[in-house]
Nucleic acid binder design. Sequence first.
DNA 1: AGAGATTTTGGTATCGATACCACAGCTTCA
DNA 2: TGAAGCTGTGGTATCGATACCAAAATCTCT
Lengths: 371, 371
Amino acid sequence: MLLAVDMRDHETDKVTMGDIARASGVSPMTVSRVLSNNPSVKEAHRKRVLAVAKRLNYHVDIIARQLRAQHTFQLGVVAPFRGLVGTYYFGQILQGIQQVLTGTDYHIALYDSLSEDFNDIPKCVNLCHERRVSGLIVVAPELSAKFPKTFASLKMPIIVVGSSMGRQGVSYVDVDNYGGACLLTEHLIELGHTRIGFVSGRADLRDASQRELGFRKTMEKHGLPVVAEWIIQGEYEARKAFQVSMNLLAKSDRPTAIFAANDQMAYGVIDAARILGLQVPEDLSVGGFDDIQSSAEFVPALTTVGQPMLDLGLVAARYILDVLSKTNTAVLHRKLPAQLVTRSSTAMPNQPQRSATSDDPLSKISRINQG
Amino acid sequence: MLLAVDMRDHETDKVTMGDIARASGVSPMTVSRVLSNNPSVKEAHRKRVLAVAKRLNYHVDIIARQLRAQHTFQLGVVAPFRGLVGTYYFGQILQGIQQVLTGTDYHIALYDSLSEDFNDIPKCVNLCHERRVSGLIVVAPELSAKFPKTFASLKMPIIVVGSSMGRQGVSYVDVDNYGGACLLTEHLIELGHTRIGFVSGRADLRDASQRELGFRKTMEKHGLPVVAEWIIQGEYEARKAFQVSMNLLAKSDRPTAIFAANDQMAYGVIDAARILGLQVPEDLSVGGFDDIQSSAEFVPALTTVGQPMLDLGLVAARYILDVLSKTNTAVLHRKLPAQLVTRSSTAMPNQPQRSATSDDPLSKISRINQG
DNA sequence: AGAGATTTTGGTATCGATACCACAGCTTCA
DNA sequence: TGAAGCTGTGGTATCGATACCAAAATCTCT
């Protein structure tokens, strides 16, 4: 009765608990108990069942388990593919999520909130709900995203990443872009800069507008002028920033410091400054935002605002898991602090007289190749 | 008996087909038929059932359907998160996949092949198999990826993206990186260049080595020298490329053209050239690879090799769906052609005598600001 | 009108794992 | 020795949708 030889062995994988039960002379229930580590089963049976399961190359049928448990163990991640997937920011969030999920039974189900089927987030969230995801992380950096209160009534944990939802009962985790921008602006002001320009990011993204707001408010707070011509559009792209800052820096009436709303654009600004013969940070201080990997190695090493992108994913995923395990039931409203990272692309501005002799950037051009 | 009023209405969503059946006076089977568009059901019943389903806010229980159908409608996508997620390349592939999936019942389940649980691809593939994904797309740009033949014996369609699998029975779709590199090299040679440098990509990535090979073979084919000092490591990063090409271009014995293994590095090379006072393309032709979005707008517009990244995703997803629907059962070995995109960053090399007078790059430095 | 063909409907079993209850076998103590 | 307690084990029902078959309802034609 024991260990009836099964010639199919590793071949077919339609092996069920019933098969194992038959082959090891116990009931399916006992098999189920063994495989779910229920302690109330005799050691002899346990060993035999495990051996048979291994021999038959058994794997639980996840679907049946899901049906019984009414739980898919899928963590839905909703994001606008166009524009977000393929960015470092989103990649880091995904890695954070995966780090939390590794070792659990959960995995990521990815949905495009811009798919032509459902051109807005609520529709996509409903789809996920119908698909019975266990929890949902909505990555929504767009300004236009609408989040109806009905989200809160869905019978699943849900959290928004990258958008602060105000007073609504929806959980979110976001980076404090406003505060981060204040930090960098304060830093530049403390160094003695009063003529500061700003390269803004994509107008449709929430974080971009928050960074610009932080810059403006801090300038106002210190009674410093925000010069309209010194606020230029960089679209979050190094190239675009390069082009627009070429124009700005070529003028004789130019700022002594520039705050770029992300690091890539800061690179673009520095490239432009180099070409125009301006030394960074001697003639121009440049600050960025994000602290992407290359910014530490960049020459000059970039002063920037560190954004805990990985943490966004970690916090969001951990929150969902906590709610699912009933550890936490509260609505989460969390702004992760951004950190000022001071490196060598910012310094005190040159003395006025010195700056006067060098109004023409071309006069300095040879210096770049001698340094 | 008809239309018994249900006060719960939209509240709870534990509505089953049985509930609808009861509320509309038919059997669960008829409800099932109506909801799966089976034509053999009387129009009166159909209308009543649909009305009730809507009123009760019914949604099929996907899990139960899956169990019955033995099919999860999940398309597994396996990729090394670290290094790949967050790249434009992977973003495009994902978008391609999603485009095919939009409108179908399938959706993406994302798995990290580098998760600490299973540090190699076969383990991750097994996990997906256990999780009963309906099909699997393995994105594997690394050189080290091992693909045992056992993949072919898994009872699910599987395709590898970004690695040509040689003679093994595993399907793949890849871009013809080798051929693309040949195209660009030929282009430079046709323009009259004989002194050509190469900025290589990440040594661990398959595509990078293929591009370099294409360059080398084409040079050899034309009897041109591959100068060791002119093959420099750019790691696929603009910054790195900028640094190493600064060194290379500052020498008096420098190439007249540089082929960078991706567009970002080409940007870096061009930036370096600018700073050294070299005009592109007059003094230096620069070609890239990938044709990323910004390359068309770049100044000068970049000559590059267009890589159909979106198509990788499209072809892979379409293949899986075809196999699942039995439309196709053959193993797919497909290399998508890369396309030469000629823009303004490449041109005929300067005449030798002219090049002789300008051995010192500094002599040209003022030109950049006058153009 | 009634036999036969056709459309429409409902009952039952099934997918595979597992919660719950009941009970067999064994131990412990009055 | 028998009642009470404990441990292991198996039977049955359930999660919700649907394939399959049989039965009912309807239609067709002589």
